[in-house]
Simulated assay, not measured.
Amino acid sequence: MEQVHKKLVSSEKAVQIGRLVYAYPSEGERFYLRVLLNHVRDPTSFISIRTVRGVVSPTFRECCEKLGLVETDSSLDNALSEAVTFQMPRVLRRMFATIMVYCEYTNIRTLWDKHYESMAEDYRHVHGNSLIVEQFVLRDIADILSSMGKDIRNYGLPSMQLSGETNRDYCRDLTEERKIVVSDEDIKLAESLNAEQMEGFNEILDHVMTNRGKVFFVDGPGGPGKTYLYKTLLARVRSTDRIAIATATSGIAASIMPGGRTAHSRFKIPIKLEDNSVCNFTKQSGTAELLREASLIIWDEVAMT
């Protein structure tokens, strides 16, 4: 503590001239001294300012905790536990990183072990490999820490790999597809299909459910209900935890379908086509993995007049 006290002499002098220099939570004991100086009346020494009900605390932080001036490890743990009930995993990861940087939690690894499953829930739905899921979570937290000027390697968390299949881009497309919400309204669309729509719906769905690949061509002028059929198929397939990709040649047509994107965007098709043009993704990319996992791909070709 003597070394800490020497470093904080300038802060004590600042109080004597009537101006208290600002300190960030990440500055540790200097920050907690500043908190005490703002709340303890007429301190006469470093020992007196750390004394609560006749007992001298070994650190400024512990003194702050006894006085209820800062969050304790227990309250931060409880805050994360409470957030699990109403926050998305990505929000929990940001909250965890913030605690790492600004709250000086005593044992970050224990906090990680307790709340890891909640922070990894979205990635776990996409990828069954637990090691890869862990790497995705670590990479997200590392990115957040980096934006705060911190290095994840200094906090005692599991080791983070830097290459290979754990590249976050690999599963980005799968993650986005898995996050598409299927509404009850879309699920019920099948109840109002007409006879022709129902015939097409049943045949296409039968091939999807039995994993029998086939190409279907749905033809008709504008307005007969093709998009209605597409939305019904997308909802039914996605409700069975399968991947269903919705694309169209125009942005307007794509926006009508839940999770829809233009074919050029989804399949990396060059805008200007040449004789030797190819889709701009490799078989190791996230787009390729998405196509391999897909049970249904809808391409709405909008006729140009």
Rank of each mutant, 00 (worst) to 15 (best):
L174F: 15
E2M: 12
Q197W: 10
K114N: 14
M1W: 12
A288G: 11
N194E: 07
A23F: 08
R292C: 11
S255T: 08
K231T: 13
L291R: 03
C171D: 08
V52P: 00
D42S: 12
C63D: 04
R34P: 00
N194K: 11
S159D: 09
D122L: 00
L131V: 10
A288V: 07
G128P: 06
I180N: 07
Y116C: 06
K268R: 09
S48E: 10
K114L: 14
S250K: 03
I269H: 05
G223Y: 00
T232L: 04
E274N: 14
D42E: 15
I99F: 13
L193N: 07
A120D: 01
D140F: 05
L174P: 04
V40K: 12
S159P: 01
A263P: 00
S11Y: 08
I132N: 00
D184T: 09
Y22L: 12
L67N: 04
G156N: 01
T232Y: 03
S11E: 14
K150E: 13
H115L: 05
D151R: 09
E71Y: 07
N78Y: 02
Y102C: 03
I47Q: 00
A254W: 09
L76N: 00
G286P: 07
V55C: 00
E165I: 08
R34H: 09
T210C: 11
S26N: 01
G200A: 15
R168Y: 05
L76P: 01
I47H: 01
G225I: 09
I180K: 14
N154M: 02
I269W: 04
T106V: 09
R178E: 06
L273Q: 09
T72F: 13
H125G: 01
H115M: 05
E121C: 09
P25K: 07
G156V: 07
I99V: 14
C63T: 14
T247W: 10
G220D: 14
V133F: 03
P58D: 10
M1F: 12
R90N: 08
I108T: 12
E117M: 05
T59D: 01
V278T: 05
R93Y: 07
R124M: 03
R178H: 10
T227D: 03
I99T: 02
E2S: 11
R109P: 03
K7P: 00
S192W: 02
T247S: 15
I204D: 06
R90L: 03
G200C: 15
S11G: 04
T59I: 03
Q161W: 00
Q3M: 11
L69Q: 03
S26Y: 10
I256W: 09
R172M: 11
N38H: 09
I243S: 00
Q3F: 11
G68L: 08
D219G: 13
C64Y: 09
L290G: 08
V218L: 15
M209F: 12
E176C: 08
E177N: 13
